[in-house]
Design a protein around this nucleic acid. Structure first.
Lengths: 137, 137
DNA sequence: CTTGACCTTATAGCTGGGTACAGGGTCTAT
DNA sequence: ATAGACCCTGTACCCAGCTATAAGGTCAAG
């Protein structure tokens, strides 16, 4: 049984307007309509919306999220192109992971220093993310 | 020898206005001024700006970046509070890393399927990031 | 057969994070 | 001593990503 826009919005805890906005932006396919014009969503729309929200929190723009969602191997899609794009995204994500790990290593040192009550002034986090500066995003 | 705003902006490749904007926002301390009112930046400002840029790309809001930068153990700062906050940030960052890894694992499967010319329709990335939905961000 | 909670489109407005412009002062080189 | 490249403040504008409002249609409950 299909869901109304209000139901999916509630399930994912986003605004109804936001769902329609994503449709306009192309992140969500235009769903079936009832005779009276109401949108009817399949249940997996909820997963899609959740994915979008998570990806946003990871620093992806809506445009990028759209690209991620469009990646797939379908019957007649150029396989090579998809593979290339996919590998590009993997690189990008790997870089993000790398940066986050550096941040976390530094935060770990800081927490340790705290626990040991060793006052280490000078913002400690600044060390994280030095180097590899060119080619930023 | 201190740097002018134009010099730091050039070094980090951001707009001069952006540097001033960060000062207004409190991400950058108001620097010394020359008698004529010119800002004089110490060299480590460059590192700080680079950190800000990277952190932005990882989905941190300026507000959060500010908090990260303010974390430090200083002489009389409540050590416990800093440690607690730091551990909170670590959790948050770890969650981001976890999510990114899920995305990348999925992208890896996709690339493999591409290479093997195995058409797997149905957007494969939707599987990544399922579960653990409550308490988002 | 009406009330109230839904849905529709269209358009306007808000927040975050900048970016540009106006109007003016400064500094260095020639 | 003046041109040109910088700096200053203040204000206005821009884009992404929503979010709210207006004006109206739908539908289930009573």
């Amino acid at each position: 049984m299909p869901l109304t826009i209000g139901q999916v919005a509630l399930a994912v805890d986003v605004n109804v307007q936001t769902v329609r906005y994503y449709e306009r932006r192309g992140l969500l396919a235009a769903p079936q309509r009832t005779v009276s014009g109401y949108r009817q969503y399949p249940e997996d729309t909820i997963g899609r919306l959740r994915f979008i929200r998570h990806a946003k929190g990871l620093g992806f723009a809506l445009r990028e999220i759209q690209e991620l969602l469009e990646l797939r191997v379908s019957r007649r899609t150029a396989c090579d192109a998809v593979e290339r794009k996919t590998r590009e995204k993997i690189e990008l994500v790997e870089q993000k992971i790398y940066d986050l790990r550096r941040i976390n290593r530094t935060l770990g040192h800081l927490a340790a220093a705290c626990a040991a009550r060793r006052p280490t002034d000078d913002c400690p986090i600044l060390g994280a993310l030095e180097e590899h500066d060119e080619s930023d995003n």
